[in-house]
Simulated assay, not measured.
Amino acid sequence: MTKREPVAGIQPELLRWARETVGLSIDEAATMSKVSPADVTAWETGDDAPSYVQLEKLAYHVYKRPLAVFFLPTPPNETSPQGEFRTLPETEMQSLTRDTYLQIRRAHAYQLSLEEVFDGRNPAGEQIWKKLTLSQSEPVAEQAQRVRDALGITLEQQTEWKSDDQALKQWRKAVEDGGVFVFKASFKQADISGFCLIDKSFPLIYLNNSTTKTRQIFSLFHELAHVLLSVNGLSKFDQRYIEDLPQAEKKIERFCNAIAAEVLIPAADFMQCAARLPRNAELSSERDFSELASRYGVSREAVLRRLLDQGRVSQSFYRHKADLWASQKKESTGGSYYLNQGAYLSDRFAREVVGRHYRHQLSLEQAADFLGIKPRSFAGFEERILQGAGA
């Protein structure tokens, strides 16, 4: 067989499965493969088969699957995002991009790596989801205080943090100390704020690093609320999607938002601090919103949402300002490769991998594979991890 001849033994069903599990249409897969839509259709119906070169491109560059998977008798048993996440409306789920599908797949791979690296046992002394569960029928303020108590961070400590970067780093560490691993990535689908994957031993939160630090902080607690409800969650930056959800899922998303807001901006303290604003808070200055946001290490939108809940601004004013602030330039994600990669990975996971390598429990190649880096990059990465790679 030459590289131009059709490959024998490929299961058409596997080609269709591989395309659908990265959210690509036939036209999109054809464009990325540099073939016609008719070619892709013929491959998936069994009327034709790709050449070896075409199959390599499909496997490694388009569908991101091992070549061998296309010769299996049936598709592997994987849960699709549509079956796994119920917190986005069907229309929103259909709009997920290939990159988002790949990020979800990568998160599942991290969970498997966590189980292997930690020998199946979560290293946290107290696992927060076993110590604390949330209920939609109980008062939000009381439950949010229990979350804060479990994380061991007081309001006084929070208000002393000097930057959004420091706030994210401290909150993230507290969540990881509770046994929930926090990973990040720069999503190409910019409107995704994050998601979580529940698990009996290794629950995981995955944040979009392309959003601001304050947005990541809110997403961290929104997803933590999902974990404490034992519900997988996938959320977007623009909260208007919630209104299109079925009633049960709508209640879950509103509850998770309420818990996140109350943990980060306790209502009693906010009432006192916001008392100096005009009764009609729409007359407040940008500086007023910024100072309140800075106190809690949250976004101006989160502060404005609190004022909306108090009836001190209108829905139209809130939406106008939220859209305006969202359109403003987001934080840069440039800088050192090692700094960025260290921030993307769970700190506890990265330190354990580095430690196991130096205890001769993992080879350089194995450690680099777990960390998603080249072996030659390990020394520079390890230095950043041991120094503390940031939020």
Rank of each mutant, 00 (worst) to 15 (best):
Q127R: 15
I128K: 01
I128N: 01
W129I: 05
W129R: 09
K131H: 06
T133F: 04
E138K: 15
V140R: 06
V140K: 03
A141P: 03
R146G: 08
R146A: 14
V147P: 03
A150Y: 04
L155Q: 14
E156P: 07
T159D: 05
S163K: 02
L168H: 02
L168M: 10
K169M: 10
K169I: 05
K169Q: 12
W171N: 00
V175I: 09
V180R: 02
F181H: 08
V182L: 02
K184C: 14
S186W: 05
S186F: 11
F187Y: 13
K188D: 15
D191V: 08
F202Y: 11
L207E: 03
N209Q: 15
T211P: 00
T214A: 14
I217W: 01
F218P: 00
S219K: 04
E223I: 01
A225D: 06
A225F: 07
L228S: 03
L229W: 01
N232T: 05
N232H: 13
K236W: 03
K236G: 12
K236S: 13
Q239A: 08
Q239L: 09
L245M: 11
A248Y: 11
E249A: 11
K250Y: 12
R254V: 05
C256R: 07
C256L: 07
I259D: 00
I259F: 01
I259L: 02
A260P: 06
V263R: 03
L264V: 10
M271A: 13
